[in-house]
């Protein structure tokens, strides 16, 4: 048998290949960078973004902020019910979304229903449709259906969060250790018992974490939905803006910041305790 030269011995061996490959990635990276910059530049031009205009706008900004000062805190007692409305919208929207998304997630988990194309495909399809429209659009749709007020806000948050949570929950279910499921099936337990004892305990930490994140984010979204008619603090902010009551606006903004910070704090405490 003749001696085959190893890669290292061959002229232009390991090193040569490496150098060639490195040059290839280098030119590719530069190309990508130029392309990204070109797109950004075109978009900036299209949007007429300009540092000059921003600098020129600074005095008006200061003027606007000055009008907001001092905040008119006397309006706060009258806004308490608006806070409750906003929080309730977020809470109900999240709760309904968590419950519905868990069912959809079971169907959309490859390891459970991957072999059943009907259930798997249907769940995946529904989840992606729910996710593809922003909650603001869902709110417009539901306002047309059930009229103005907090209710369409709740429905909009439910539908959109359901799409987001369903995808995350399905991934959590797909990442579980299959061992316990196999063990429960081996005892002769039925499907629901197996889900309850082998799958639920494993996905619980993720479900709680994602749901609390969703609640935090839904509180913020509930403000925005309020501005398009779902009531609550967002609505009050909109009204104050339209009436040029800038000192009320600043009080409401401070209130929003405090509310969001409080919810974030509470949910991080709950998360820490459960996981």
């Amino acid at each position: 048998m003749t001696h085959e030269p190893t890669t290292a011995e061959r002229p232009g061996g390991v090193r040569g290949i490496d150098r060639g490959r490195r040059r290839a990635t280098w030119t590719r990276d530069i190309t990508i960078a130029i392309a990204v910059l070109a797109i950004l530049g075109w978009a900036a031009n299209d949007l007429s973004l300009s540092p000059d205009r921003f600098v020129q706008g600074i005095p008006s900004l200061i003027d606007f902020l000055a009008k907001m000062f001092p905040p008119d805190f006397s309006v706060i007692p009258g806004l308490l019910s608006a806070i409750v409305t906003t929080l309730s919208v977020a809470l109900w929207g999240t709760t309904l979304a968590v419950v519905i998304s868990l069912f959809l997630a079971l169907g959309a988990a490859r390891n459970l229903f991957g072999s059943n194309r009907l259930i798997y495909g249907f769940s995946r399809f529904i989840l992606s449709v729910l996710r593809s429209l922003p909650d603001l659009v869902w709110a417009l749709i539901f306002v047309a259906a059930v009229g103005l007020g907090p209710f369409p806000g709740v429905l909009a948050l439910t539908v959109y969060s359901c799409g987001e949570l369903g995808k995350l929950h399905a991934e959590a279910i797909e990442n579980i250790d299959p061992g316990p499921t196999e063990a429960l099936e081996s005892t002769g337990a039925g499907a629901f018992t197996t889900i309850r004892w082998a799958i639920v305990p494993q996905v619980m930490p993720e479900v709680v974490t994602y749901s609390l994140y969703r609640l935090e984010s839904n509180v913020r979204h509930a403000f925005i939905l309020g501005m398009v008619g779902a009531g609550g603090l967002g609505f009050e902010l909109q009204v104050a803006m339209k009436l040029f009551k800038y000192q009320e606006v600043s009080a409401i903004i401070i209130l929003i910041i405090l509310t969001v910070a409080t919810i974030d704090f509470i949910s991080s405490r709950i998360r820490a305790r459960i996981i």
Partner: peptide
């Protein structure tokens, strides 16, 4: 692999 439910 024991196949116990770890969080229980």
């Amino acid at each position: 692999g024991y196949n116990l439910v770890n969080r229980l």
